Lab assay of single mutants.
Amino acid sequence: TLFEALYDYEARTEDDLSFHKGEKFQILNSSEGDWWEARSLTTGETGYIPSIYLAPV
């Protein structure tokens, strides 16, 4: 399942991933609670993103 960003997000740590509204992600690991490891389909970068900023596509 792909997810789309509902809002912009600016990374706060080196493990976080910055993204823009409308960016799409492949989720790599969603077992860490509210922060999911994801790969951006726009940039190819991976990192942790807040799941509350996402909606399934």
Rank of each mutant, 00 (worst) to 15 (best):
Y7C: 13
A11I: 02
S18R: 04
G44T: 03
A11K: 09
G44I: 01
K21Q: 08
P50N: 14
T43R: 04
S40T: 03
W35K: 12
E4P: 00
L41E: 06
E37L: 15
R12Q: 14
F3P: 00
S31Y: 09
E32K: 15
E4L: 10
T46R: 10
Y7K: 09
L54A: 03
R39T: 10
R39G: 01
E32M: 14
T43E: 01
Y53E: 01
F19S: 02
S18I: 02
S31W: 09
E23I: 01
E45Y: 10
L28A: 04
F19E: 00
W35N: 07
V57R: 03
D8Y: 05
T43V: 01
V57A: 08
P50E: 07
K21S: 06
P56E: 08
S18Y: 03
Q26W: 14
D34W: 12
Q26R: 09
I52Y: 13
F3C: 05
W36H: 01
Q26S: 08
T42Y: 10
E10F: 10
Y9A: 02
Y48D: 02
A38W: 01
G33V: 12
L54Y: 01
T13H: 15
S40H: 06
A11L: 02
Y53R: 03
Y9T: 01
L6A: 05
S31R: 10
D8K: 05
L28C: 06
W36F: 06
D15Q: 14
G22K: 04
F3Q: 03
Y7G: 07
R39V: 10
L2W: 09
A38G: 08
A11T: 05
D15I: 14
V57C: 08
Y48Q: 08
L41S: 04
Y53P: 01
E23M: 06
L2G: 02
E23K: 01
Y9G: 04
R12W: 08
D34T: 11
E37S: 08
I52D: 11
L41H: 05
L41N: 04
Q26C: 13
A55P: 01
Y53V: 06
N29R: 09
I27L: 06
E32N: 15
E10C: 12
S31A: 11
D8P: 07
T1A: 12
E37M: 15
E23C: 05
K24T: 09
A11R: 09
A11C: 06
L41A: 05
A5L: 05
E32Y: 12
L6C: 07
N29T: 08
S40D: 02
L6Q: 07
F25R: 00
T42L: 14
F3W: 15
W35S: 07
R12L: 12
K21M: 08
A5E: 00
A38K: 00
R39F: 09
G44D: 06
L41M: 12
G33W: 10
S30F: 15
I52V: 12
Y53H: 05
A11G: 10
S31P: 09
D15L: 14
T1K: 12
Y7E: 09
F25W: 02
G22T: 03
Y53G: 05
